[in-house]
Nucleic acid binder design. Structure first.
Lengths: 238, 238
DNA sequence: ACCGGCCGTATTGTTGACAATCGTCAATCA
DNA sequence: TGATTGACGATTGTCAACAATACGGCCGGT
């Protein structure tokens, strides 16, 4: 017990920090987010307070607090006296979100281009190469999070933490697209060429070029989504 | 009771809808937001659960739920076992927020320009005229919300509700700038010329022109804020 | 067979009580 | 005198109980 600082301190430090900062509600919140993003809870499904509180062994208060935060985050919808439901995002709202995301991505490109380092360019290039390796049509499960990470990393590199928060919140919500296929089809079946153009544009260190590359990328993703919508719903009237 | 629909129905409808949708926590949440935005609670101040629950005559749970939502909205900061504090936004974060807002405003201009109607252009012009009337240096209290409303209305006119939600959340947070003067000096002491340019750009119905006008406006607001910061803090070192 | 009202169950809304933690202040000791 | 420890008050974290509401089935009437 003499040199407890050698290896024990670290875990103790993290444990202390954990207890000091983490409340039950925030843990519950993270768990529910995990369940939603992993698909364990589908969009539109009802989430009962007791089911969660019982499963996690906590009181209902903590669950209710988590629900309130999740509603503000846009992941669930609270109907008074009826319950909480995982939010569904219809086609029209999805289109709106694509537009906002395009604006955020454009901003990210504009901010990052003048300040990107050579090391960061290398990192992004390696990322694109890795994506290339998983382009096989049956490798969605791997390609999908890797693609998200690519775009997230670009926003992260801007150094603008507020932008990162807003961006991540939006991406989280976009997981709730009523038909997930649209998200994947829209953002995913993209040939990797666009990703390479993005990195090239960033490497040019010209803000306008990078901004345009980002915007075009998201816009073409939106177009692919809309095409998927059109083929899926034959639009009876209007 | 025969024609109860004539005047009774409306109030009954709204009352019913109110009861069906409004929970205590959401009322508490709105009240706290009002207190924060009105300055009744300054940035950095501690907000005690019992003080609120006692004042509003509700249980602490409702207040706690409201706090959780407000934290997710970025208006308060929760420190476990210590309390909730109205969030303070430092100069660096303020600069980040200005950048994000510039991106959102640019997007709004880009979306609105191609679809703006003649009536909407008229409305904005009248708005600018009204702003002009309150440009006196001692009319901040009137000019300030009017200016906010002008920009809010532009975003609203885009018809993109998601953008409106994201935009409003950001504006709400920007009220928490540590020194409010920065927000006012940054976004307010602007000569009305820039506002006229914005409307003119929108009236041209050219997306790129409108986007640039919006972006430049926010950027010059940011520059004014930074200038105010520099004069206020003589930056001792580095 | 169908419609409307009644009732029981399940779930949520709200409150109050209890436990845990933090900050402060005074008392003690070097 | 200064620092450290202990106890106290205040505040928050969590839980369990009670009240209110909504959903579904049953029943009687037509």
């Amino acid at each position: 017990m003499t040199d407890f600082r050698a290896n024990g301190s670290d875990t103790a430090q993290t444990a202390i920090g954990f207890l000091r900062t983490t409340s039950l509600s925030s843990l519950v919140q993270e768990e529910i987010v995990r369940m939603i993003l992993s698909g364990e809870l589908d969009a539109g499904a009802q989430v009962k307070e007791f089911a969660i509180s019982d499963r996690l062994g906590v009181g209902r208060s903590s669950v209710r607090e988590a629900f309130r935060a999740l509603e503000e985050a846009g992941l669930v919808r609270l109907e008074k006296n009826r319950g909480v439901f995982v939010r569904e995002i219809g086609d029209d709202e999805a289109e709106e979100m694509y537009a906002v995301r395009a604006g955020l991505d454009e901003l990210a490109g504009r901010l990052l281009a003048p300040r990107i380092t050579a090391a960061e360019i290398d990192e992004l290039r390696r990322h694109v190469d890795e994506l290339e390796a998983w382009l096989a049509p049956d490798a969605f499960a791997t390609y999908f999070p890797l693609n998200l990470r690519f775009h997230d990393r670009i926003v992260e590199m801007t150094g603008n933490r507020k932008l990162l928060v807003v961006y991540r919140r939006l991406i989280n919500e976009m997981h709730l697209l009523r038909r997930r296929g649209l998200l994947r089809g829209g953002g995913l079946l993209v040939s990797n060429d666009e990703h390479r153009s993005i990195v090239d544009a960033l490497a040019s260190r010209d803000a306008d070029t990078a901004a345009a590359a980002m915007r075009d990328h998201v816009r073409s993703g939106r177009d692919r989504m809309l095409a998927a919508v059109d083929t899926a719903t034959p639009r009876s009237a209007a």
